[in-house]
Design a protein around this nucleic acid. Structure first.
Lengths: 147, 147
DNA sequence: GGCTGTCGTAACGATAATAGTTACGGCAGA
DNA sequence: TCTGCCGTAACTATTATCGTTACGACAGCC
């Protein structure tokens, strides 16, 4: 499917900011988050910008600038993040209109659309069951060294 | 997610072959299927080749060559097709290894892997509930002209 | 045995999305 | 005024999908 890492990186950033704030810090910088995720600060700023548009984080400019959570980790779900950073549907239709003179070509798109809707609804329910609080919990529960 | 149309086109091809065979024909050619899907015959042959490797269809060469179902439409599910034509996982991890010296960087991948596994398992269950028989049924149930 | 139609597959180009990088203006607190 | 970081544009690299052309291989038929 040519899967991308946007959801993973966004969840990483949110968990990082959440933990950082619990350690008493006010704001997190894209540079520190990028160092943890081993990527470029611009990638983080772009993703966090989309999360800000969705109302999940806030940013301050000027001196002492950085990012902070707009909502508690426990009230943010992977579905919120998914909707914020993933634009399109899971499965695509034909790139060109099928032959409408053919019975299958005529009916295939309505049929698949209905089926895909059900499947995506199930996916969304599943994503909504996972909060970022749980993500951070799972992160912290990972043993420091493999046995 | 940069969704692709492979599952859609593969389902289209299977439904087309199934209906064609019910109309009394022996084998379907990639050219006819491609005409219905409004794409190139090579695209169809590539997809059907993957379905053949998965044991869903068979192909004959030589004169009177073409494609036929290896199993009944009712015994083929969208999960079978999905596994045949979609290689990777739904969500990707970081492209580079996160900072293992950071608590979040160290724990994020095991955490997300577990979460993604559960979600993909749910997706697979949902795909397994839809047979190609139902797809063809939905296709044929589509009204010829919108009211 | 040659003819014919289709598969099987390689090869190439077009398109698009993601991701990484550099650069730079703008903001706000010290 | 200085400083640190955001916000964003711009460019490149990489990758996957899709479309297309081309051609050898195969098998039934005349």
């Amino acid at each position: 499917m040519s899967a991308n890492s946007r959801l993973t990186i966004a969840a990483h950033a949110l968990a990082w900011i959440g933990l950082y704030q619990r350690q008493g810090h006010e704001v997190a910088t894209s540079e520190k988050i990028a160092a943890s995720a081993n990527t470029n600060p611009v990638v983080i700023r772009r993703l966090l910008g989309e999360l800000r548009r969705a109302g999940l984080v806030e940013s301050r400019r000027g001196a002492g600038a950085g990012w902070s959570l707009a909502r508690e980790l426990g009230s943010i779900t992977l579905l919120d993040v998914y909707d914020a950073v993933e634009p399109g549907p899971l499965f695509a239709m034909h790139r060109t209109t099928p032959d409408q003179g053919c019975v299958v070509g005529h009916g295939i798109q309505p049929a698949m659309r209905g089926i895909y809707q059900d499947i995506e609804e199930t996916l969304r329910r599943e994503l909504a069951r996972v909060t970022l609080e749980k993500v951070l919990g799972d992160v912290l529960a990972t043993p420091r060294r493999p046995l």
